[in-house]
């Protein structure tokens, strides 16, 4: 069956069983590899993407549920050398080690800043609790998100 997804602002037709996970559609159907498979059971968050602006774990969202809705992946938030302020903040703060959780973490952070442009440290930690990181101990991730919030507040980006 053909599914019509709006992915990163583009309309995509994918020939796929609607009962397959959205993650498989993105990775295998569309070649978007930024969303990563970490546990297949929605615990690690490495596959986080935005579905109509909300963070979802693409491994446990059925492709059919995304039909006709707007999907944003890490590939859709910046292009070329220009980065989203959240990405820049992650790089500058050293909030990335192995990088496997990073796309999901960045998307979770973007969705947080859309809901709450000036989050407290506690709000940041609570918001990203669905995104496991085994490398950083979260501290630089939290600092990067706070820094991105500040940069966006200063008008340091037009993405949010």
């Amino acid at each position: 069956m053909a599914l019509n997804l709006k992915v990163n602002g583009r309309s995509e037709w994918v020939e796929m069983d609607p009962s397959r996970p959205l993650l498989e559609v993105l990775r295998e159907g569309l070649g978007l590899l930024g969303a990563r498979r970490g546990c297949e059971t929605s615990y690690c968050g490495a596959c986080s993407v935005l579905l109509d602006g909300q963070v979802v774990h693409a491994c446990t969202v059925l492709a059919g549920m995304a039909d006709g809705r707007e999907v944003t992946t890490i590939e859709g938030i910046s292009s070329g050398e220009a980065l989203h302020p959240v990405q820049s903040a992650f790089i500058q703060a050293g909030a990335i080690q192995c990088g496997y959780c990073t796309p999901g973490m960045v998307l979770a952070a973007i969705s947080l800043l859309q809901h709450e442009p000036n989050p407290t440290e506690e709000q940041i930690r609570q918001w990203i609790r669905g995104n496991l990181c085994r490398c950083t101990g979260y501290q630089k991730v939290v600092a990067a998100i706070a820094e991105a919030a500040a940069a966006l507040g200063r008008g340091g980006g037009n993405h949010a």
Partner: peptide, 18 residues
């Protein structure tokens, strides 16, 4: 700034699973 972070921040890091 580490050299591998740009690709990792943009989701273009390439892992064996990819």
């Amino acid at each position: 700034v580490r050299k591998d972070l740009f690709r990792k921040a943009t989701g273009s890091g390439q892992y064996t699973v990819d």
